[in-house]
Amino acid sequence: MANTLQSKKRARQGEARAAVNKARRSRIRTYLRKVEEALASGDQAAAAEALRGAQPELMRGVTKGVMHKNTASRKMSRLAARVKALGA
């Protein structure tokens, strides 16, 4: 348990950051789910549009420290490949 004023404040700040990060991560997952649903429906135009919406959210998550850069790049690459394959 935090005893000093400084450690109590840091504990409060940590809880606040965790809440922000949780919301941001949830938002990213929602955008990714939209892409997955569009892919499942077989509509390439909708999937491409959803992918264009998801890309900035993923990269924002990287800049905010919610996810690693390579993780976001890997997800984008795999989704883009699936959208492209849908058209072929």
Rank of each mutant, 00 (worst) to 15 (best):
N70P: 05
M1T: 11
S77L: 10
R24K: 12
R52D: 14
E49Y: 02
R52F: 00
A81S: 14
A48S: 07
S7H: 13
R25G: 10
R60I: 06
E49M: 01
V66M: 13
S77H: 07
K34D: 13
G87L: 05
N21T: 05
D43S: 06
S26Y: 08
R25E: 10
K84Y: 00
A38E: 03
A18R: 14
T63L: 13
K69C: 04
V62K: 08
A16D: 10
N21P: 09
Q44E: 09
R78K: 08
E49I: 08
A11H: 12
L58N: 00
R82M: 06
R25A: 13
A38R: 02
A72E: 07
G87S: 09
A11K: 09
T30D: 15
T4I: 04
K75R: 14
M76F: 10
V62D: 14
A2Y: 01
R25Q: 11
Q55G: 03
S41D: 14
M59V: 06
D43A: 01
R17S: 15
S73Q: 13
A85F: 04
E15Y: 00
E36Q: 05
A45Q: 14
R52S: 04
E37S: 08
T63H: 14
Q13V: 11
A2T: 01
L5Y: 03
R27S: 10
D43W: 09
E15N: 00
M76H: 11
N70Q: 15
L39G: 10
A72P: 08
E36I: 01
Y31M: 05
E49H: 06
L39E: 07
A23M: 06
V62C: 02
A72K: 05
A54P: 07
A54V: 15
G53D: 11
K64C: 04
G42L: 00
K8H: 10
Q6M: 03
V20W: 12
G65L: 09
M59G: 06
A11I: 09
A2S: 00
R17E: 14
T30R: 13
K8W: 02
A18Y: 00
V20S: 07
G65Q: 01
L5K: 12
A2V: 02
Q6L: 07
I28A: 08
R33P: 10
L79I: 04
A81P: 01
A11N: 01
A16R: 15
L79Q: 03
A88T: 13
G14D: 08
K22Y: 13
D43M: 04
M67Q: 15
P56D: 04
R82E: 12
L51I: 10
G87M: 12
R60L: 00
H68Q: 11
T63F: 01
L51D: 02
G53V: 12
G53K: 11
K69P: 05
S77F: 04
A81C: 03
A45N: 11
A47F: 01
H68S: 09
D43K: 05
R60N: 07
A38M: 05
V62Q: 12
Q44P: 04
